[in-house]
Amino acid sequence: ASTLVVAEQIDGGKLAPVTLNALTAASQLKQDIDCVIFGADKTAETTTQLQKFNNSNIKKIFVAENVAFKGLLSEAVTPVLLDLQKKNNYTHILGGSSTFTKSILPRLAALLDVQPISDITKVVDKDQFIRFVYAGNAVLKLKSNDTVKIITVRGTAFEATKEGGGSGQANVEKLDSSVKNDLSEFVERQIQQSERPELPSARIIFSGGRALKSKENFKLLYDLADLFPGQATVGASRAAVDAGYCTNDLQIGQTGKIVAPDLYVAIGISGAIQHIAGMKDSKVIVAINKDGDAPIFAIADYGLVGDLFKVIPELNEKLKKK
């Protein structure tokens, strides 16, 4: 019995951080791990980064490089994964939850007649897993009877695997990745360039809601984040995104990103169930809101009732002096 982890390449050949959370979940299954990496180029760099984690039972890294993998289109990637599964009969196939794995793993599962398991937060044993349903209002324990379990792993629920002191030499094998895909084509990608960390890996998140009132006012949050270079970033509630105050990739909640930073500062966010689903596992939650009855206060460690347009500038000044 062995496990396949679908490692994810992101911009510039980097290994996606969420792959390391998936490796932790995979190592809890206590069996050998193979990994597979897809990319249009720079897969050697991604492989080198992955090899640093060979302490987590990684036996082999399969690498599939082909221009057809540009944009990691599901129609190109899935057939290669299907072949790999048919050859090696893994009992578990895992990926860290991301738009990439959410796209390919259910598609792969359908081809194998498997009911996939989305966004697990706990591995109970080889067949049983825990995941949240109803926006985190219920915790479901399920048992899969499929011969291969196909799983996405919620990154915030598993620590990232740490670099090991091993030799860093898991076997690398190039896959025959001749791909024929005339179903779909990649056109372009618009990635928000930012010096700030990605939401799921930020230590501190300053998150804004509708009460910020405008796109310009969101700058108040960026100013706060910039007091913690490389550690802090900005998030938003769905209401703020819908109002056009910020781009949609900042949305935190049931249908946006799930985060669990050390410090989450909810500013002008009332605390709809759907938002709380995306941030309630943060280690410390601060709520700043004019309305002292806002539901966000019920889950906040430190609630401060006040006008954010007074509180935020004061907070900024005083944090700067510190």
Partner: peptide, 19 residues
């Protein structure tokens, strides 16, 4: 293909602290 073994309430977060 799956059995749903149990549904539980999520752990309650201790909140409500004020400054």
């Amino acid at each position: 293909h799956q059995e749903y073994l149990s549904y539980e309430e999520p752990p309650k977060r201790q909140g409500g602290g004020r400054v």
